[in-house]
């Protein structure tokens, strides 16, 4: 008799757990199986089809793309941080119409990245476009800056600069929101205390806001550097002649029809992101320690 009680208890437990499992499993199974598929495909393609990684690393095309991506990440990340901080400071306090301003600051993230890239391409078109018209001094109100129209997509520096501009424009709201959340955790009393001690607003920013905002700033640096490593759409549209790693993957897959090589570059990109994240996490820990000690 006891065994049957035990059995029914077990059955009951299984039944109730089955319910939990049944509820939990759908999305979990979908996401994890895709995770496994992606990982296995990338590894299998990169290693089993005889792609010599050393050869890939020494290929000029890959090396150039790697350097470009590195510079793209290295310039775009701090730029996005500064822009995000400016925007967050502008909408942090409450004043008349702040809600409206905030809504307008959110617009860029709503515009599809592809559309943003294409509009920038149109605005900076060569030889005749609105920006070139301005720089050539063809509008009365603007001084002439250059004698010949600027060919934006023809220069590595300028076309990648445009890609950084586009990426920064589109992702402004993300950095802004994270920094805004960070700013709002700083208590009002601390500012009041600083003010009674005679701190000027610049000093307040330097000695109070910035140190207390450090966690949010580090979060942004991690998230943005990941995001910038893997950027594809803006350089794809604005700097097709100077491929970043993402653009190189697309080209290897579609133009050269070489999925194995594309997969190995894709795997390199994953590894780079992993390494960057590790480095930044380490820095974050060190900075936290330092902050606590002070």
């Amino acid at each position: 008799m006891p065994s049957s009680i035990k059995l029914s208890y077990l059955l009951h437990k299984l039944k109730s757990n089955l319910f939990t499992i049944g509820f939990f499993i759908p999305a979990f199974l979908y996401l994890v199986s895709f995770f496994v598929i992606i990982l296995v495909f990338l590894l299998k393609f990169s290693f089993s089809e005889g792609i010599p990684f050393l050869e890939l690393f020494s290929a000029n095309e890959f090396k150039a793309a790697l350097w470009r991506t590195f510079w793209f990440m290295g310039i775009a990340t701090p730029l996005q941080l500064v822009v995000g901080l400016l925007l967050a400071l502008l909408i942090q306090q409450s004043y008349k119409g702040v809600g409206m301003v905030r809504s307008f600051f959110m617009i860029p993230i709503a515009i599809p990245a592809l559309v943003t890239a294409i509009i920038i391409d149109l605005v900076f078109s060569y030889p005749f476009g609105p920006i070139n018209d301005l720089l050539l001094g063809r509008h009365g109100f603007f001084p002439q800056i250059t004698g010949v129209p600027v060919n934006w997509s023809g220069s590595e520096f300028l076309s990648l600069g445009l890609a950084i501009l586009g990426k920064t424009w589109r992702d402004m709201p993300i950095s802004m929101l994270i920094l805004l959340a960070g700013l709002q955790t700083i208590e009002r009393e601390q500012y009041e205390a600083a003010r009674t001690m005679g701190a000027k607003s610049w000093q307040e920013f330097k000695y109070l806001t910035l140190p207390l905002l450090t966690p949010a700033i580090l979060t942004i640096l991690i998230l943005r550097s990941i995001e910038n490593w893997k950027e594809f759409i803006f350089p794809f549209i604005l700097a097709p002649a100077y491929p970043l790693l993402g653009v190189l993957i697309e080209r290897l897959y579609h133009v050269e029809q070489n999925p194995a090589l594309a997969a190995s570059v894709a795997l390199c990109l994953v590894a780079l992101i992993g390494i960057t994240t590790l480095i930044f996490t380490f820095i974050t820990k060190m900075v936290r320690k330092y902050l606590v000690r002070v």
Binding site: L31, F35, I38, L42, F232, G246, I249, P259, A266, V270
Partner: peptide
């Protein structure tokens, strides 16, 4: 751990993940 696995697929860059997904 389960939550990590839920989010893990988004750790891949889109442009990396799209190759295996397209192949599949």
């Amino acid at each position: 751990i389960l939550l990590f696995f839920l989010l893990s697929v988004r750790l891949f860059p889109d442009i990396s993940a799209v190759i295996p997904v397209a192949e599949l």
